[in-house]
């Protein structure tokens, strides 16, 4: 800071200059002492100093300050503009991101739904297939069962006839007539259909 130093030097110089003479004892008001020519001469020099001050201030010093202040105002304005632009861009980006996210969420939802539907579909298909296979197997087994029963039933009269023949032979000691045995057995056996 140079100005305080300047002020100190100026004050010291002024004090030395002023100390050159000691003021006289004032009788009246020195401000109204028209006999002192310095009262008028100070106005002349004061006018010179004030005019120089005014000219320097209005021509160079004050425009300089105004320039710095204008530069700062412009700078602040441009910074604010930049900040506003950045904010607008950020808002835009935020909006885009939201949009994107919503879209992605919807897509994911769709995908999930589709996958679930597909899975359900394929599960149902497998189930149907299995059911069909099971049904077919059950039918085949039933058919086999029926065939076995039929075979069994068909062989039953033969067995019964031979058994009855053997029994009668044992009991009577002679071989019975096959035709009588057969009719007797078939009379006692239930019909094949039963």
């Amino acid at each position: 800071m140079r100005l305080p130093l300047l002020a100190a030097i100026m004050t010291a110089a002024g004090a030395i200059a002023l100390g050159a003479a000691t003021p006289a004892f004032a009788v009246g008001m020195p401000q109204l002492d028209a006999s002192n020519p310095l009262l008028w001469w100070q106005l002349v020099w004061g006018a010179v100093i004030f005019v120089v001050l005014y000219v320097l201030l209005s021509r160079s010093a004050l425009p300089k300050v105004a320039g710095v202040l204008a530069t700062r105002a412009a700078r602040i304005e441009s910074d604010l503009d930049a900040a506003r632009d950045a904010k607008r861009e950020a808002d835009e980006a935020g909006r885009t991101m939201h949009e994107e996210r919503r879209r992605a969420a919807a897509e994911a939802q769709d995908l999930v739904a589709k996958t679930v539907a597909e899975a359900r579909e394929s599960a149902a298909a497998t189930l149907r297939e299995l059911n069909a296979k099971l049904d077919a197997e059950a039918d085949a087994a039933e058919a086999r069962l029926a065939a076995a029963r039929d075979a069994a039933l068909a062989s039953l009269p033969g067995v019964a006839v031979s058994t009855a023949t053997a029994l009668v032979e044992k009991l009577t000691g002679r071989a019975p007539e096959p035709a009588r045995i057969e009719s007797a057995v078939s009379a006692h056996l239930p019909s094949k259909a039963a």
Partner: peptide, 13 residues
């Protein structure tokens, strides 16, 4: 001497 301080005097010899 309240008014002596206002007396004008020449400076710089």
């Amino acid at each position: 001497d309240a008014l002596g301080q206002f007396v004008l005097y020449p400076v710089f010899g």
